[in-house]
Design a protein around this nucleic acid. Sequence first.
RNA 1: GCUCCUGUCGUCUAGCCUGGCCUAGGACACCGCCCUUUCAAGGCGGCGACACGGGUUCAAAUCCCGUCGGGAGCGCCA
Length: 498
Amino acid sequence: MNQVRVRFAPSPTGYLHVGNARTALFNWLFARQNKGVYILRIEDTDIQRSEQQYEHQLIKDLQWMGLNWDEGPDKEGDFGPYRQSLRMDIYVSYANSLIEEGKAYYCFCKPEELKKERDKALAAGKTPVYSGRCRGLPIEESKKRIKQGEEAVIRLLTPDKGTLTFHDMVRGSLSFQLALIGDPVLIRSNGHPSYNYAVVVDDALMKISHVIRGEDHIINTVRQLLLYKAFQFDPPQFAHLSMVMGKDNTRLSKRHGATSVHQFSQEGILPSALFNYLALLGWSHPQGKEVLSIKDLIESFDLKKASRSSAVFDYDKLYWINREHIKSLSNRQKAEWASVYLKKAGYLPKKLNQDQWDWLERAVADLMKGVNKFSELPEKFALFFDFSPEKMEEDAQKALETDCGRKVIKALNEKLDQEAKVDFSQLSHISSEIKKDTGCRGKELFHPLRVAITAQTSGLELDKFIPLLEEGSRLNFPIPIKSCAQRVAELSRFIQNI
RNA sequence: GCUCCUGUCGUCUAGCCUGGCCUAGGACACCGCCCUUUCAAGGCGGCGACACGGGUUCAAAUCCCGUCGGGAGCGCCA
């Protein structure tokens, strides 16, 4: 068996969409599993829409996901260059050879004429097919017209009848009537190659063994196969993946939420989690396992088990997988990820000292539960950094305005020593004293207690919170953490004023 | 309109090729209970699907035909 060589061939016309990322991923898994070669090829023949900045972003996104390539624009191999805009002379010379062999011809039809014909066919309820009007033009005459400055495209001569059948690795046997396929344009009048043509030349010259791409390319495969035949190249194997949709079963777009790899990375989705989720979109593990490492996926991936129907992108499931991946991180790793977002929120200094790292590791270990993505973490940490009675929610205030609420706060304030560090056992002791003194118990006791210390009605268990709070208050953070006693005093003053 | 692809819980899917083990399995979401000095997490449980109609067969989610639904393509875009 020949070596497996696959490619991901994006056009740099926007951010990397998760649908394309999944295609890239399936290719990558296939390559890695078969000890093959993974190639990145930039398809920038559409000069109108291609942009440098997108290419940089694309490369960053792929690297972030861990989809490393063996050959590509920045990693030359034996079959380069890997950017189509640098291969123009190759396309032209191969097209000319087809002209010489009589397998392709110059076409002088004007785009407006062709559009008119298309519209007419559509109106008549027929599939628009190029008529082949310019097929018969003598080559000498065509060359003369071009020399005189007339614009022409090069088209491939294709059969008018018969069917073409090919085997698709995920869909099985697929057949198409050739009468419905017009002669495709190879070289546009501006001298640039068309997509279908450039792809074939590149795939053939780069010795691509398997073409794994989206379902929207199925019909292109027919045209491309015709080209392989004209060139007498051996065609690769094809696999067409189903599409990725949004909730309403239309193509996943901005309306549905985040769609680009870039957005997910910004939100604090772990690359391994996005990798895992995307692999599960249209594929499943033989034992039904869902939380999978990249290594697991390389071992168990099977293209033949890819789903043939489209899949709806489910943010909830992605978040669940992300939570699972976060769980398997060490506290230090969690802290490092968290620090990015907490710095942005202004809670942490640019550079943390050892004590601050230790504190953060412990805080993150407790606060990470139930967090979907790291961008949600600052609001959790507000519990430490943002104690502000004046901004209290209504339900928090209500808890204090009860009879017990007032009594508990007052007693608590009196019992807490402003200077001393409070620990949880001390607080438990104090709270049982308060219970005795005020007669408030259960929820009536603990709810005000919590609100007094956090100004919120929900959050971490106090036995975990108090030590972190007290320690944090003695560390030098950009926004100082107020100690337990400070908080209670501040809150007491606040309620007295209302 | 035409061509191609596709159709199992709300969603991702297992099962389909090689009919019976399927009173259709798992996961996310949702709901409930337990745990709990809140919320969450965790544990336990519940709701919930073979698009429809015909065949073939002792037997169909599984094979065949039709209908309907969804998607894609029909460019000198990629």
